[in-house]
Design a protein around this nucleic acid. Structure first.
Lengths: 236, 236
DNA sequence: CCACAATTTTGGAGTGACTGCAAGTTGGGT
DNA sequence: ACCCAACTTGCAGTCACTCCAAAATTGTGG
C-alpha cells in the first residue's frame, strides 16, 4: 500500500494547520493568536488541532526531530582526524555558508527569533527542545565512542558544544535585530565561531585567573572593576 | 521606619503561602495540587496568591535571586591564583562538604527533584531559571575581568561551567532516586567533579577524535572503543 | 451498491491557570 | 475620628487543554 486517501488527507490537514498557525504567529505574535483562530483559519475544529499537535507551542516549533537527526549525522559522519568539536565547528561554518536553518541563519530568521523572544511559553519550549537535543547528541557521542554507560563525559562534551553554537545563534539574532547587515553579522559570526571553538577545544582553565602576586603599580590581567553591582533581584 | 505591622503581615502571608504550597507539592506532586487548594490551605483568596507570586511555578521555585547572589559571590571572591573555573570547582566541592542546597545536595533533595522531574511546567521553569542564572554569572564574569561588551567569552565560560555543575547535580539526583546511598553518591560526585572540571579546563578538543590512518585489512574502521582519548573512569 | 468496522472529526461540557475590575477591609498618619 | 493608600476579595471572563460521546469519513468484504 503506497498511500491511501486517508493518509494523504491527514498529511495535508496537518500541513494546513501548521502553515496557517505559523503564518498567523509570524504576523501577529504567538500570544496574540488563539488556538481557536488557528483552527478557524485551517478550517478545522479546535479539537482537531490538538489531535495533531500536543500543545500550542508545537504548532510553531515542530523541527526537533529533524534537528536531532541532523546532529546525529554530524557526530556519526565526522571525518578521519576530526574530533566531535571539530565536526561541529565545520558543520556550523558550513551552515553559515549555505544559509541553513539549523542555527538560525535562514531567510526570515529574525522574525522567527523575535516571535520566540516575545513569548515566554515559546522561550520555555525552546529551552526544553535544546535540552532534549543535547541529550540526543550526548547519546550519539556515547554510542560512537563506545563510552561506558556511567561515563558522563559524552554529556559534558555535548553540552559544551551546543552551548557554544546556541550562544553564537543567539548573538547573531540579536545583532540582526539591532539592525546589523547580514554581511557584517556573518563575518562577525565566522570570527567568533573560530575564537569560541578554539577556546572550547583548548580549555577555559585559565580564563579569568587572578594574579598570584599583586603588582603594586600597574594592573595585570583580570583585575578589579568594582563600581557597584547593578541589583537585579527582580522576578520576571 | 523599622517595620510596621503591614510589612510584617505581608512577609508572614507570603511565607505562609509559600510554605503551604511547598508542603502540598512535596506531598502530592505539583500538577495534583491546584492554586485554589494552596489558597485554601494558606487561608487567603486565589487572587492573593497571584498577588504575591506571578505564576504557580514561582510558588515552588523562588530561590533564583539567592542563587544569583551566591554565584556572583563565587566569581567576585575567587582567590588569588584561581581562575573562574577553579573557583566554581572549589565551590562545588565545598557545597558537597556542607550539604548546601545550591547544587541539590540538601536533605530531601530527592523528593524535591522528583516533584520537578514529574511536572513539565516545573521542568520548563527550571530551565528558564538556569538560563537567567547563566546570564547573571556571565555578567559577573564580564564585569570582573573587565571584558569588552562585545566579548562573548564570558558567556561561553559561564555556560560551560554551569553546564558542568548542572550535569553533576542531575546525575546525583538520578542516582539517589535509583536507590544509591548518600555516601556512594557523594564519593562518585567528588570523583566525577574532578574529572569533568579537569576536562573542562584542559579542553575537549581531542574528545572523540577519529584516527587519521585506517588500517586497510579487516575492520579497523573506527567503531572500537580505542578511538577516543583514554582516561580512567574507574568506579567504586 | 451495501453493510460494517476502523479511524477521524466534531461539539459540548468541563478544569484550571491567570487577568481585570470594582467593591470591601485594614493599617498608618493626621 | 477621619482619610488615604495599600492590601484583599469576589466575580466574571479568557484561553489552553481534556474527556466523552455522537457524527462523519474512509477502507473492506460481500
Amino acid at each position: 500500500m503506497e498511500e491511501g486517501l486517508r493518509e494523504r488527507k491527514k498529511r495535508e490537514t496537518r500541513r494546513r494547520i501548521s502553515d496557517m498557525a505559523t503564518g498567523l504567529f509570524l504576523m501577529r505574535g504567538f500570544d496574540q493568536v488563539t488556538v481557536a483562530e488557528v483552527a478557524r483559519a485551517a478550517d478545522v475544529s479546535v479539537n482537531t488541532v490538538f489531535n495533531y499537535f500536543g500543545t500550542k507551542e508545537d504548532l510553531f516549533l515542530d523541527r526537533q526531530a529533524d534537528l536531532e537527526e541532523i546532529y546525529r549525522g554530524v557526530v556519526r559522519d565526522r571525518r578521519p582526524g576530526e574530533s566531535v568539536a571539530d565536526a561541529f565547528r565545520r558543520d556550523f561554518l558550513d551552515a553559515l555558508d549555505t544559509g541553513d536553518w539549523r542555527y538560525g541563519f535562514h531567510e526570515g530568521a529574525e522574525v522567527f527569533g523575535r516571535v520566540i523572544a516575545e513569548s515566554p511559553a515559546l522561550r520555555a519550549r525552546t529551552l526544553e527542545i535544546e535540552r532534549q537535543v543535547m541529550a540526543c547528541v550526548a547519546a550519539a557521542i556515547a554510542e560512537e565512542t563506545g563510552a561506558d554507560p556511567d561515563d558522563v563525559r559524552p554529556e559534558l562534551v555535548a553540552a559544551q558544544i551546543l552551548s557554544t553554537t546556541r550562544l553564537l545563534s543567539r548573538h547573531a539574532l540579536r545583532r540582526r535585530a539591532a539592525g546589523e547587515s547580514p554581511r557584517e553579522t556573518e563575518a562577525w559570526l565566522r570570527e567568533q565561531a573560530e575564537a569560541l571553538f578554539d577556546l572550547l577545544e583548548s580549555g577555559i582553565g585559565d580564563y579569568g585567573r587572578r594574579p598570584l602576586v599583586v603588582a603594586d603599580d600597574g594592573e595585570a590581567a583580570g583585575d578589579h572593576e568594582d563600581d557597584h553591582v547593578e541589583g537585579d533581584h527582580g522576578r520576571p
